[in-house]
Design a protein around this nucleic acid. Structure first.
Lengths: 112, 112
DNA sequence: ATAAACCTTTAACCATGGTTGAAGGTCAAG
DNA sequence: CTTGACCTTCAACCATGGTTAAAGGTTTAT
């Protein structure tokens, strides 16, 4: 239904990202719409680059609660800064690696 | 001397990145220049974005051997492609996050 | 009635890259 | 001769994000 494996759902539950769902008489879990949609939120957030603990940080304790727009925005903006930071690092790495290549292809060129 | 913690050096040794060094009579490790320089190579390679297993892949078994220029270049070029790949992913993430921000700031704008 | 296909729990395992601690040996200075 | 500061080994632990297996209960279909 959500494309998320059972073991992953259990993992999220045991780590507090998903609440304990109601159970049937036989002990089987029954998931409310709210929990399903929370799981989808987790999946999307992960795809946006949030770690599980970051996600846990901004999800409301009660899955029926709505996340505040202002919180969403500030979390997204923080993440944007982190992404920009990482982009900068990666670009520096790229620069270094490509200089190493140039050097190894022509050790006699002016740059060390 | 290299700025690398003892535990890290032991870790590298136990994972085959560094060879077993010679020992003094009392059992203390003695590091040859070759090993020290190998450790420095590892540190630099890590900074360039290589994982320990990648590093293990291109370091010669014998720390006294010299890495072939051609190998260096092809490893660096592979890494460059990986970096470019990652840059693309990160840029897509950035795009998504920044669209989410725009949406949350003005849910009525044309774009979903 | 029995097998397949689910569900439950708990525990262990994977990779990555280490750090920390315990128990003990060694060495130099005071 | 004792103290501090190193060294040794081995094992366990940390975070991250899960998967896999074992042992058992349930449900559905044939």
């Amino acid at each position: 239904m959500t494309g998320v494996s059972t073991s992953r759902i259990r993992f999220y539950e045991s780590h507090g990202l998903l609440p304990m769902p109601l159970r049937q008489e036989n002990g089987y879990r029954v998931y409310s719409e709210a929990i399903v949609s929370r799981l989808k939120t987790i999946t999307v957030s992960k795809a946006l680059g949030f770690s599980l603990s970051e996600i846990q940080g901004f999800l409301p304790d009660d899955p029926n609660d709505v996340i505040q727009r202002s919180d969403v925005v500030s979390n997204l903006e923080n993440k944007l800064h982190q992404i920009d930071q990482k982009l900068k690092e990666l670009q520096e790495m790229r620069e270094n690696v490509s200089q190493m290549i140039a050097y190894h292809k022509d050790p006699n060129s002016k740059k060390c």
